[in-house]
């Protein structure tokens, strides 16, 4: 047991080191890619009629006239010191300030969505598995198929029409000065964002549970008279949940970085909507930071899943799997 723990720590440390290397790699790729991409930021900022002289002046004022390696070293040096640079647009806000205000917003949305998706998804999946091939199972399965295929940009307008325009009980967009309790502003974005992961988790839990329920030990437990609720939760679900936990982890990563459609539609000032605007306006420092943070989130989420799995399954912890 102890040596197993040591192995785990070593494994995690190496994962961590690998993560740092990945981030460095990501930073080089984004840096070089944004340099190679046609049309530099100065051209974009200079506007439709700018003369070559104006573009050159802007390039100088942004420090883009320095060679690429120099800019890269300065950039990484800055990040190490906590300086992510400044946005090219707006009031030239510090990138760290942009991350600081947008990340918690997105984190809140993604956490609520993944929690809603997990609770509903695992419950529905379990119920469907218990009632396999019955009408209830068919119903849940169809609903989840629908949920997987319905895109956010279709669902959001439908819900907005019903709840904001027709019945006028929820706000259409996020507002700086809230005119109602916070949950009202989060209800629609969270629901829309959680639908797809909820459906995926339902299907995954169902499949995993069905497989588990067919196993020997469940039949034995049933034969020994273990009460059925206890059987389902303590024995079956406990065993069926491993792939689901991994899926929750990766899905959460995608929610954190893939919520831009929802954020944009509901004017929710999170990192997704900021990233899209940065890409559209060639705002390189913000794009770079967003890509790095995205990479970081994926690495951390995977790390957390790696830590959680052995806690849930002793076989992994003891190196048997």
């Amino acid at each position: 047991m102890r040596s197993g723990g040591g192995q785990l720590v070593r494994a995690l440390l190496s994962r961590f080191a690998f993560g740092i290397v990945s981030l460095l790699f990501i930073s080089i790729i984004t840096f070089v890619a944004s340099d190679l991409a046609p049309g530099d930021p100065a051209t974009y900022i200079a506007g439709e009629k700018a003369s070559p002289e104006t573009i050159q002046r802007i390039r100088e004022s942004l420090g883009l006239d320095k060679p690429l390696p120099v800019r890269y070293v300065n950039y990484i040096g800055g990040i190490v010191k906590g300086d992510w640079g400044e946005s090219y647009s707006g009031t030239h806000e510090k990138v760290s300030a942009i991350l600081g205000r947008t990340m918690p917003m997105t984190l809140r949305l993604a956490l609520l969505a993944i929690m809603l998706a997990s609770v509903v998804g695992i419950s529905m999946g379990t119920i469907a598995a218990i009632r396999e091939t019955k009408l209830l199972d068919r119903g849940i399965l169809s609903a989840s198929t629908f949920g997987v295929t319905l895109p956010n940009f279709v669902l959001a307008p439908i819900l907005t029409f019903i709840f904001c325009i027709k019945f006028d009980i929820l706000p259409t967009t996020w507002e700086t000065q809230l005119r109602g309790p916070l949950w009202m502003y989060l209800a629609l974005p969270v629901t829309v964002l959680s639908l797809r992961p909820m459906s995926l988790l339902t299907r995954l839990t169902r499949a995993s549970m069905i497989e588990t329920l067919r196993q020997e030990f469940i039949r034995t437990a049933t034969a020994q008279g273990v009460p059925s609720f206890r059987l389902m939760t303590k024995y079956a679900l406990r065993n069926a949940i491993l792939p689901v936990v991994t899926a929750i982890g990766t899905t959460f990563g995608f929610l954190l970085t893939g919520s831009f459609v929802v954020e944009r539609y509901f004017s929710y000032p999170g990192i997704g909507s900021t990233t899209i605007e940065a890409i559209l306006s060639n705002n390189v420092p913000v794009i770079q930071a967003c890509v790095l943070v995205t990479g970081f989130i994926f690495i951390v989420v995977n790390l957390i899943v790696d830590i959680l799995l052995p806690i849930l399954d002793p076989r992994i912890r003891e190196g048997q799997v």
Binding site: M115, D168, L182
Partner: peptide
Amino acid sequence: GAISIVLVGCGSGSGSGGGGGFSSRG
């Protein structure tokens, strides 16, 4: 822990109910 992080700040929001629907609030 995750739930409490999420709910931090949930108390804010004035919630002044207007006469009509949500859009006429405030």
